[in-house]
Write a protein that binds this DNA or RNA. Structure first.
Length: 315
RNA sequence: GGGGGAGUAGCGAAGUGGUCAAACGCGGCUGACUGUAAAUCAGUUCCUUAGGGUUCGGUGGUUCAAAUCCGCCCUCCCCCA
């Protein structure tokens, strides 16, 4: 996953285009998705102003003004060249009034139309984003109106921004039933084990999140029996891999004791090794979920996984 | 043998009569992080039945009051011989 706002600031979409697009620039042959900057409307709320036409950002790096319209955001993403691109939206804060959520959600739908009209590169899939806050009527309205526009896939946005888990589940429950089964459903920004499994149980196909890499950088390791922090002294002479059953590069080659030593010594390699593990951990989880679905035993699989974590939250 | 300096919580280190259970850092322990302004942030770290109790190398004093002042002792470091 790459980001329109951040890549615009540095190194710039023109440069990425000149390099031949993100795949060539990064030398990455796998699927790439770019987010539209809609999340930065929420996360960088202090530095922006919203109007009907779009969002004016103040660059958090230089202070420079950047005007993002739905059309501009599509144009930038076409230059970046990801496989899947996102419609411009506003990720609504939580908690929020019904009045504001309605106003914002309606605007996001207008922006979705504009973005769709501006979209030229048909080799890229364009997804529309469902908003609506925590409100059932707005989620339904947002989903139905967005689906009417006929996007290549549908994203559920505005979740995991500080709301309690029951509210998160509500948001998903209020959105998914109105999204077609024959197009991808993407739950944006979800990365914890339990949230992913709850999403899959509700019919979601895709996820993305910084969680596995961010917590890895902070020393946290995802394992099937719960979360573990590599900083801890108990791992000082623990010469086992992070997780015995794991087939990742890190677990195949390094011990907890060594990774802890790297971490404590502030060696960046520790962060990379932990990130590799957490990413592989989640991908493996999804692979197994897929197998469980094929075998028509997904709910059992989900329960088995969550029970092993030792608590309801996952970790 | 002569001269000088130092001993404070797990470690380092402030504090030099009351506002000191004692700053700060490290280490330890908890916890957070979810469409990336995050190699970050928060809490905790003498004991406690939570009322309080016992601390600043040891010991004996001075004082209403001592980590802080005085005597003696112990240990360590540096310089000269």
């Amino acid at each position: 996953l790459a980001n329109t706002y951040h890549l615009t600031l540095r190194p710039g979409a023109e440069l990425v285009a000149k390099a031949g697009g993100l795949h060539k620039f990064m030398n990455y042959a796998g699927p790439i998705l770019t987010d539209s900057g809609g999340f930065q409307v929420f996360s960088l709320a202090k530095n922006r102003k919203i109007n009907e036409d779009g969002v004016i950002f103040r660059s958090h790096l230089s202070g420079e003004k950047l005007f993002f319209t739905p059309e501009k955001v599509i144009e930038i993403q076409e230059q970046l060249g990801a496989d899947i691109i996102m419609s411009f939206d506003e990720c609504i804060d939580y908690p929020v009034s019904h009045t504001y959520a309605k106003e914002s959600t309606e605007r996001t739908i207008r922006w979705a139309k504009r973005g769709l009209n501006a979209h030229k590169r048909q080799d890229q899939a364009l997804f529309g984003i469902v908003q609506g806050g925590e409100f059932a009527d707005l989620r339904k309205y947002s989903a139905l109106e967005t689906v009417k526009l006929n996007f290549d896939g549908y994203s559920i946005g505005g979740t995991s921004i500080g709301e309690p888990k029951d509210v998160f589940l509500k948001m998903v429950d209020y959105s998914v039933p109105y999204l077609p089964e024959d197009k991808p459903r993407y739950l944006m920004g979800i990365g914890s084990i339990d949230y992913i499994l709850e999403g899959i149980a509700r019919g979601v196909d895709m996820f993305d999140s910084v969680l596995p890499t961010r917590i890895a950088r902070h020393g946290a390791v995802m394992t099937r029996t719960g979360r573990l922090n590599i900083r801890k002294e108990i791992f000082k002479d623990d010469f086992r891999p992070l997780e015995a059953a794991c087939d990742c590069y890190t677990c195949q080659n390094y011990t907890r004791a060594y990774i802890r030593h790297l971490y404590v010594s502030k060696e960046q390699l520790a962060q990379r090794l932990l990130s590799i593990h957490n990413l592989r951990f989640l991908i493996k989880l999804i692979e197994e979920a897929r197998e469980a679905i094929k075998a028509d035993r997904f709910l059992d699989f989900k329960n088995e996984v969550l029970i092993k974590f030792g608590d309801e939250r996952g970790f």
